[in-house]
């Protein structure tokens, strides 16, 4: 006897499934089967593509539909905050994280997502805290006001404590509203103003750092809750990788003081990648590289974000491999936590 879940039972249903002519129960069985059967999945894909043609010659929808749709879309989901070009990576990460949070059951907000103790709710409070330092520097009135000299860690402790007392929806709204205000306050063109996030950075770099951290925590939350996530667009990833390459000498200098004058050539592969020659200790002009490292750009960013183990990091090393390994081992120190 053939089970209703078997290949033999499901395969004849694929034509009906592709035409939406199964019962909902059967459609579910087919869909479940497709994820595990390459033969049926290929046939389903092809028959679906054919079914897509069955509408025949295409009719133009009424002119007003597109316009109505745009305004309806705003009500369903906020688009990325409007931002100058240099802050688009940040605006995009805000939109993606907000999308993820919108689908999160309330219970999932208490799941531990990072640093062995921070819940999803806490991580969002942490983002509010650090974004708030940038927003305050741009003249946005943040609550509580930022005292001079406050660092991200101190502010995080205060905001996490505050947000614990608030419903998750309100935390989400505070974070998103502040991100919108931050983007609104940004100068159209960078004007040399700096923001201190661990060390002083020009505003565009601060926004890239915020994009980077928002992405890394989005992945933390995705991992903790089983939510879908995607890597940054290549045009957003590239400036983040570039920021990492420019900032890394600050930490490698501390970890590898004996390597002053030496250089690492970094080849980051994949869309958004590139090649950088990075001094181990900043201030030394680029010369011939002493070591070469080739790695995937997304994985490298995760390493810099302290989300990968340098000892197990997949990279091709050339030249002075001991130097390359020491440099990779130092890379996660760029992340502000832990």
């Amino acid at each position: 006897m053939t089970s209703t879940h078997s290949h033999e039972a499901i395969h004849p249903l694929i034509g009906a499934w592709a035409l939406d002519a199964c019962t909902p129960e059967e459609a579910e069985l087919v869909q479940a089967h497709l994820s595990s059967c390459a033969v049926c999945s290929e046939e389903a894909r092809t028959l679906r593509e054919t079914a897509a043609e069955l509408g025949g010659g295409h009719l133009r929808p009424p002119a007003g539909l597109g316009i109505r749709l745009r305004s309806a879309a705003h009500l369903r989901r906020r688009p990325a905050p409007r931002a100058p070009g240099y802050a688009k990576p940040y605006a995009a990460q805000v939109a993606a994280l907000d999308l993820m949070l919108s689908g999160l059951p309330t219970g999932d907000w208490q799941r531990i997502a990072a640093y062995e103790q921070m819940s999803v709710h806490d991580l969002l409070a942490h983002l509010i805290a650090t974004d708030g330092l940038v927003a305050a520097a741009l003249g946005v009135a943040v609550r509580p006001p930022v005292e001079p000299g406050t660092d991200a860690e101190t502010r995080t402790v205060a905001i996490v404590a505050r947000e614990k007392e608030r419903p998750v929806d309100e935390t989400r709204r505070s974070w998103r509203d502040q991100a919108e205000e931050l983007c609104l306050a940004l100068p159209r063109r960078p004007n040399g103003a700096t923001v201190t996030l661990g060390f002083p950075m020009v505003v565009p770099d601060a926004l890239l750092a915020r994009a980077f951290e928002t992405w890394i925590h989005t992945e933390d939350i995705a991992g903790a809750t089983g939510s879908a996530a995607t890597t940054p667009l290549p045009e957003h990833l590239h400036p983040m990788a570039d920021l990492a390459a420019r900032l890394l000498p600050k930490v490698t200098a501390r970890r590898m003081p004996d390597a002053a004058g030496r250089h690492v050539r970094l080849h980051l592969t994949g869309a958004g990648g590139g090649t950088w020659t990075v001094p181990v200790v900043s201030g030394h002009t680029a010369g011939e590289p002493d070591a070469e490292i080739t790695a995937d750009v997304v994985e490298f960013c995760r390493l810099v974000g302290a989300r990968r183990d340098p000892d197990a990091f997949p990279a091709e090393l050339g030249g002075d491999t001991a130097l390359a390994r020491a440099w990779l081992a130092a890379a996660p120190s760029l992340a502000p936590y832990p």
């Binding site: 133009r60 597109g66 990325a80 939109a95």
Partner: peptide
């Protein structure tokens, strides 16, 4: 996913018919 409204317009342009 990244909240790009222009992409939404593109999808509509391509597939509304």
């Amino acid at each position: 996913v990244f909240g790009d409204e222009d992409a939404f317009d593109e999808v509509y342009e391509r597939y509304s018919a």
